[in-house]
Nucleic acid binder design. Structure first.
Lengths: 387, 387
DNA sequence: CTGTTAGCGCCTTCAG
DNA sequence: CTGAAGGCGCTAACAG
């Protein structure tokens, strides 16, 4: 059928006007305007021919794409996919196409995508996901040489760009790339926590965790442990810090031993909780406690669910033997049983907000979203108890 | 700093060669080759200048983008986000940029995206998500006029294109659009079930459900109900059909009354299960059963979890009062308790497969993925029972 | 208000 | 094997 796409000039010819007029009629060029009847004719012709503009051509002529870059750590993670849903919605509203990058936690890849976005002249870019402190992430393969195979080096694919960025990019490289992107006229928005002075939808991780701690304390809990996520993970660190700080203030400090480092994943939560249980059982001798904490706070829901599984697998019960709390209020996890106490973050809205921020609607460059504590059955009120 | 992006000609000048040579050196033009030392010089210059090609320009010159379109119903749904993760991985491997479209169940939007992809000359497009039978989905607003506001009609944004496609596109329009896309040289892959003769990663929904039914029957279950999803939803219908057919064969047919239509969502599962319970309670008089079925099969995990919540909210227990089974084996839901019996579909792999199919690696145009029954605690073996 | 004319950055025939 | 020249589809100065 209609093999070769219809071009604007075909439309112009069909309508009996010049190319320029057709262009103006169709996109309503900023300053110029077109006589009503001509416009009608052009529009009519375009409809008849089923014309639709070529984004690449427009991008080239305008020096600006209609693309919105979204980079997340892992699109399969409900935290990110919910944000992505918000971004997708807002982007569609703005008439933008979203290009998705799932970096699988490689900061090199992240950097490569930001650079790609700049090169591609994306309209804006949104970076979601807990920034890692300098350290860097590094891929699984340590690809030794900088430019190993064939015609690498200067590549035209995101892939190879990521590959030869090496195991971990220098700290600051991301910020620099983002700044360059912005200076080139692109919009930027971060989700989570700030980098430099870039626009950001901040999630009040520390405050939310502190609120949670207070609510739990008020419920009668006194002895806590924290599954704190990996070292160098900002989001995890902020949640941990907010939680422990609030407890310290309340006179129920968390012992350093009871703050366990672990991956930011379901398995991380599972394993850490299992360790905690083994320790309480005396299976791992030489440890302090000897008994389980009353409540375990996992710094995200997915970890919390892993932790609950570990409790069950050990033949124990949540909340009878240990209470568990999480963070995020992942929608898909709202029906776990017992219901998981958590801090609700309106992730989809966060995505929409970030999009609007990146697009520069509204002046503020910084929005904060504060979570709301949601108490459920995984942390019932404790019966009064003597010191 | 480096404000205006570096262009190929700058690289060429820097290397002291012509534009053409630089181009050939960098992308290794099919037929032509370049002397080794010149190539080195060009590559070196490119590196020094941090050159990277402009995708739009390449797209225009080559008449083909480096974009891979992925359209899903709802990226926040773990089913789709897991597929998306697979697609993202495979796309990166292939050096493609994925552009994401979350249609929010509007078939008009779906169609619009396919057309956009064609216009944009995307390399390939992947359509995931249960095709709806003709009926069409329709947005929430019934946008009356075909071309209502201002300069609509011929639009340059996916948004407006979707808007004026009206509530529901004619059946076959999608297939036609897909065919046109393919004829224009783009790759296509469907996920779920076939449309016409297009390449597809089929998910053996009926077979998987039948396997599940047999396993459950073997476990001693005899009286079933099905939360069947909405009318006209292919995936839902196939699962329901496979399940009921297998049971009929085994001599435990499911009464039509016990096949409940409901939305394909958590709330759909919740509500339908609640209805089932009320019915059993006699709260809704004039109904047949009077007692709960032994097992309720929800056609996807998310619905199943909603159903489990309804059971709990009614003060009943899974599996003591009713057993529950789902479909998909959503990763995030693997830790619900009791563990949910389901049919595991390797969703991420499905995404990768679809990508490869769409890219035309390998000749076959059709791959089938069969799920694997996973029995968990939500459907324990039933004690032997008299007729 | 409309039409003509240059490019945008790159690839790809063409000559040399 | 290399360089020069044209064009992809569209927009944005320019004239008219």
């Amino acid at each position: 059928m209609s093999d070769a796409p219809v071009t604007l000039s075909q439309v112009a010819r069909e309508a009996g006007v010049s190319l320029a007029t057709a262009s103006r009629a169709i996109n309503g060029s900023a300053t110029r305007s077109v006589r009503e009847d001509l416009r009608e004719r052009v529009l009519e012709a375009a409809r008849r021919l089923a014309y639709s503009p070529d984004p690449s051509a427009q991008a080239m002529a305008r020096g600006r794409t209609t693309a919105l870059g979204l980079v997340v750590h892992d699109i399969a993670d409900p935290y990110f996919s919910t944000i992505a849903a918000g971004v997708a919605r807002a982007a569609e509203r703005a008439g933008l196409i979203v290009t998705l990058a799932s970096t699988e936690h490689s900061s090199a890849r992240e950097l490569a995508f930001v650079e790609l976005a700049r090169r591609q002249r994306s309209r804006a870019i949104i970076l979601a996901g807990g920034r890692l402190e300098p350290e860097g992430a590094g891929g699984s393969d340590g690809g030794s040489g900088a430019d190993a195979p064939g015609a690498a080096g200067v590549s035209q694919t995101a892939t190879s760009a990521a590959d030869d960025a090496g195991p971990a990019s220098e700290p600051g490289a991301l910020e620099a790339a983002l700044n360059a992107f912005q200076e080139a006229g692109g919009g930027v928005a971060l989700v989570g926590q700030a980098i430099g002075g870039l626009p950001v939808v901040e999630i009040a991780n520390a405050d939310g965790a502190a609120d949670l701690a207070r609510a739990l304390h008020e419920h009668g809990y006194r002895r806590f442990a924290v599954l704190a996520g990996p070292d160098g993970h900002r989001t995890a660190a902020d949640r941990t810090a907010g939680f422990t700080a609030a407890l310290a203030e309340l006179g129920s400090p968390v012992a350093p031993d009871d703050v366990l480092t672990c991956p930011f994943t379901r398995d991380g939560g599972y394993t850490a909780m299992r360790d905690l249980i083994e320790r309480a059982d005396g299976a791992t001798p030489g440890e302090s406690t000897g008994r389980l904490p009353e409540l375990v706070f996992a710094v995200n829901d997915v970890m919390a669910v892993g932790a609950m599984a570990a409790v069950r697998d050990a033949g124990l019960s949540v909340p009878d033997d240990v209470a568990v709390a999480g963070f995020d209020d992942i929608h898909t996890l709202r029906d776990v049983s017992p219901g998981l106490t958590t801090v609700r973050i309106p992730l989809a809205e966060v995505g929409e907000l970030a999009t609007e921020l990146a697009l520069g609607r509204g002046e503020q460059k910084r929005t904060a979203v504060r979570g709301e504590v949601v108490l459920r059955d995984s942390t019932p009120r404790r019966p009064a108890e003597g010191a």
